[in-house]
Design a protein around this nucleic acid. Structure first.
Lengths: 340, 340
DNA sequence: TTGTAAGCGTTATCAG
DNA sequence: CTGATAACGCTTACAA
């Protein structure tokens, strides 16, 4: 591995082109178009190419007071939903010339991450709902876009979580189910609350009620979903259909069904929410409500960048909600004719 | 959202503490211990606390010629294996005071990413095997640690891929299988080649051979695995066990079996490699070879940081290979007694 | 023990 | 049109 040489600077380029250093800067930024003669322009560009000049974005950032870097705080990369958000945000950021500083608030606290992001002069930060909750007021003094967590203090990008719940309810009701249950994560974040509310309200509108035992809270993992489903399956009469507020929970629920030797969907229907890739990899394939995770990330980044460039301060709250849609697959079917 | 105020600098702190600006720097870095009196030290720290001083890492980087940032280039975040690598690397980096600039080389080319990383003066970069292949010589002039791609030019951290193949072979042979097949991604990267070689060699040692039709190449996705498995299932006699070089491929293979109404493992055994979380979420659970992805990422980051701090240049090639281990679950079973 | 001076690689504001 | 000159916020000699 070769020792790293001192990088070439605008000064080096200037020397080779026989111009002053600031002139190089002018040419290379090309911002004020015709301010430099074609001849020197050529010479500078040639010199830069010869030397293999690479601009030092950090130095630029120091004087411009902009780092052209975005922070991205997510609670847990193991959840494919967040991964998609990250992917979407990263793509847009890269296209717009921003770097993404990734922070996973799993083993290192979100607050500490925010601190290091601050010290790196990030221009703004994209924060997931769960991390946002943990951070609270600590977000002051940064440009923030929240994902799936509307707020009256900060800008945000959200999906139509209530519609997700409603669509799930309508799908299951349409299949003739009347004994329903819900499994949600034990997190108090907006998207999950809304998925639950949308579901419950749509049921109520159809004259179906959920008692408290039909509303299970679980750890936001497959294992959590499995445990919650086990509890539901122990009930008599057992529910004929279950809506899980996330696909990970639903996948766990499917496992619980398999363990209990119940056929899906013949004995129980199971629905998820999010439509992560994994939903199509299980058998039967998981019926779910598609939430545009990657698009959420992309929009969050776009919103942040756009307002950063406009030098506006970000207006808090509610842009348009991104639509969700029903994806009916194999894990839901008609309610069983006979009772359990 | 409040307008962002000008951040407080060492100069501000100095003014408030009634000392010179460099003194503040000395105190706050605490590098040369006793060079500053306890009294002023106190005053400075107090002033910094009062003002809520946050150091500007970028400015520090400019003079130290170090950005304390690492680049991380992965081919595709949708693959949970890479996500784990990212997670591990990010954790270690954060603990060591380094930021991670995440780059996904899916829609933006790896080369472009490397260019922007360069312009941000990253101290080093962690590159996955697939991205490394795409980059090739472009990696010159940066400190590099490759993941799962041994190289005589750059440092690397790898798992014992040959052992993975061997363990898979031994497991399946031990279950009595003699008609075996292999599905690998159509990538020419070291880890996958080795998984294949280890597998084939262990079979050969047991007197079992694979003809070319028993060696399928596929896109490195679940869909690819599904297609490859379909092809294998069309053969007569059909293989009784299939080893897929990645779990994603294996999950696709399971789908193909389900579609063909074959029972796993009664009719066919399927094995994966990597042990991503999803492997436990399908029914039957996927037998696989566990590869410590998170540990790979963590070690890559640790290696990079350690050598960066030692200001050594990174020695190329082979550190110890991280061990892999067999995880026998439900998707593999005894070879069927009757032939297909 | 502390302050002064210089410089990291840029950009921005001026005169020439 | 171009070249000095002064920042940006910090670290690191060196001088006081």
């Amino acid at each position: 591995m070769p020792r790293i040489p001192r990088p070439v600077t605008t000064r080096d380029v200037a020397a080779r082109a026989g111009v002053s250093q600031p002139t190089v800067s002018l040419v290379l930024n090309g911002n004020t178009q015709a301010r430099v003669s074609e001849a020197t322009r050529e010479r500078v560009l040639q010199a830069a190419a010869d030397l293999g000049y690479t601009p030092n974005v950090l130095a630029r950032g120091l004087v411009r007071r902009r780092s052209y870097a975005l922070g991205l705080i997510v609670p847990d990369l193991r959840n494919p939903f967040f991964t998609e958000v990250v992917s979407g945000a990263e793509r847009v950021a890269a296209e717009e010339g921003y770097a993404v500083l990734l922070c996973e608030a799993r083993e290192v606290a979100a607050g500490r991450h925010l601190e290091t992001l601050r010290s790196r002069q990030i221009d703004g930060v994209i924060v997931d709902a769960i991390a946002a909750r943990e951070l609270g007021d600590a977000l002051g003094g940064v440009n923030v876009v929240l994902v799936d967590e509307p707020s009256d203090r900060w800008a945000s990008v959200s999906s139509d979580a209530a519609a997700a719940g409603r669509l799930a309810a309508e799908h299951l009701l349409g299949l003739g189910h009347r004994r329903l249950a819900f499994v949600g994560p034990a997190y108090d974040v907006h998207a999950f609350r809304q998925r639950e509310r949308g579901f419950v309200q749509a049921l109520r509108a159809a004259g179906v009620t959920l008692d408290s035992a039909g509303l299970q809270r679980a750890a936001p993992t497959a294992a959590g979903g499995e445990a919650a489903m086990r509890a539901l399956l122990a009930r008599r009469p057992r529910p004929t259909a279950v809506f899980c507020a996330s696909d990970l929970l639903a996948l766990g629920a499917l496992k619980a069904c398999a363990a209990a030797r119940l056929r899906v969907p013949a004995d129980v229907s199971v629905m998820g929410c999010e439509d992560i890739e994994m939903a199509r990899l299980v058998t039967p394939e998981l019926s779910t409500i598609a939430v545009p995770a990657r698009e959420l990330g992309a929009r969050a980044a776009r919103l942040l960048v756009r307002l950063l460039e406009a030098e506006e301060t970000l207006a808090p709250g509610g842009r348009r909600l991104l639509p969700v849609r029903l994806v009916a697959r194999g894990s839901t079917g008609p309610a069983p004719a006979t009772d359990a």
